[in-house]
């Protein structure tokens, strides 16, 4: 049984009697201990996908459809209180911005303890001991002291590690990390990535790593999912995809992979912008920026096809080939 099986995931928002669907038709699976990298430009729907799996979209009024099977249970059928037992316990989330993700008025230690007590049913002392162990494990210097400190007294790197401690403390089976290292400098980034790798290999945690940094993906991921304008356009084994990208968008992404010394965020090097959910083009959403566009591409949406070797791609170039072959 897969750890996570997402099928036809879509989220829609309704405002002023207009409905937009920023993500749709997203399907992929994850196995225990696997690291899945989710890439895409800003606005591709990466974070929203993560929020949907965590059951956080209803907070902002999003309606989720499709199915999210976690450990054999469709999360979308769980009640709010059942979902609370999954969130933070079995699936943990490391949010995009560690600098602002801690409650400013409580000691960071207590914020780790809060989740441990809730999900592991520990008493205050045991939870504190466990929190201190976790902090040590995350190589936080002087854990006893840091435990008593408030978020504003800590550096970005320390805050990031606290947030990670909150995420992994409850022994989740799946960890979703949304751009976990954007706020950090390169050395800390590398440390954190090493830590993630350890967690997945040692504890068999599944890790879904959302990032727009292909360098990070190349270092740690087993699988890669490429999102474009709310659709999954390519999914496959990391080495396959890096060696031989199929989708024109993936190719373009890899062409502008940052090499050492290059500035971050160079993904924008692809000409044009990601369309926003209010004006997705009909047909293939990459068509306005695609060099290989065909008449068909602007008429209807290309279905995802599975190629030999397990890679999946949504592009008419490949439907043609498979049909022809």
């Amino acid at each position: 049984m897969s750890l996570l099986k997402v099928s036809n995931l879509a989220v829609e928002f309704t405002a002023d009697k207009k409905t937009v669907k920023p993500i749709s038709d997203i399907s992929f699976t994850m196995e225990p201990g696997e690291v899945l990298g989710v890439v895409g430009e800003t606005g591709s729907g990466k974070s929203l996908t993560a929020h949907a799996i965590m059951g956080l979209t209803p907070l902002v009024g999003g309606k989720v459809s499709g199915s999210i099977e976690f450990d054999g249970v469709n999360l979308l059928t769980l009640s709010a209180s059942e979902m609370q037992k999954v969130r933070g316990a079995q699936i943990s989330f490391i949010p995009q911005n560690p600098m602002t993700s801690l409650d400013p008025v409580y000691r960071v230690g207590d914020q780790i303890v809060e989740g441990l007590r809730k999900h592991l049913k520990l008493n205050r002392w045991k939870a504190k001991t466990l929190a201190l162990e976790l902090m040590e494990q995350l190589r936080i210097p002087n854990p006893k002291r840091v435990f008593e400190q408030y978020p504003h007294q800590l550096s970005g790197g320390l805050k990031q590690r606290i947030v990670i401690a909150i995420g992994i403390g409850t022994n989740p089976k799946l960890l979703i990390a949304d751009e976990p290292t954007t706020a950090l400098d390169v050395t800390v980034q590398a440390q954190i990535m090493r830590l993630f790798k350890e967690l997945t290999t040692e504890k068999g945690i599944g890790l879904m790593l959302i990032t727009h940094d292909l360098g990070v993906i190349a270092q740690v991921c087993d699988k890669i999912a490429v999102l474009y304008a709310g659709n999954l356009v390519e999914y496959g084994d990391i080495r396959e995809v890096f060696k031989k990208p199929k989708h024109p968008y993936t190719k373009a992404l890899l062409d502008c992979i940052p090499y050492i010394g290059m500035e971050k965020g160079s993904l924008a090097a692809i000409e044009g912008n990601v369309p926003t959910a209010t004006n997705f083009p009909i047909g293939c959403r990459f068509a306005p920026r695609c060099g290989l566009v065909m008449p068909k591409c602007t008429e209807s949406f290309p279905d995802m096809v599975e190629l030999a070797g397990g890679a999946r791609v949504a592009c008419y170039k490949y439907t043609e080939e498979t049909v022809a072959g």
Binding site: M54, L56, L59, S81, Q84, K85, V86, R87, G88, A89, S92, F93, P95, Q96, N97, T100, S101, L102, D103, P104, E114, G115, K118, H119, V163, I166
Partner: peptide, 12 residues
């Protein structure tokens, strides 16, 4: 942002 993390922690 911190409210999102609180929800993600599974707090009621």
């Amino acid at each position: 942002d911190f409210v999102l993390l609180l929800y993600a922690k599974g707090l009621s």
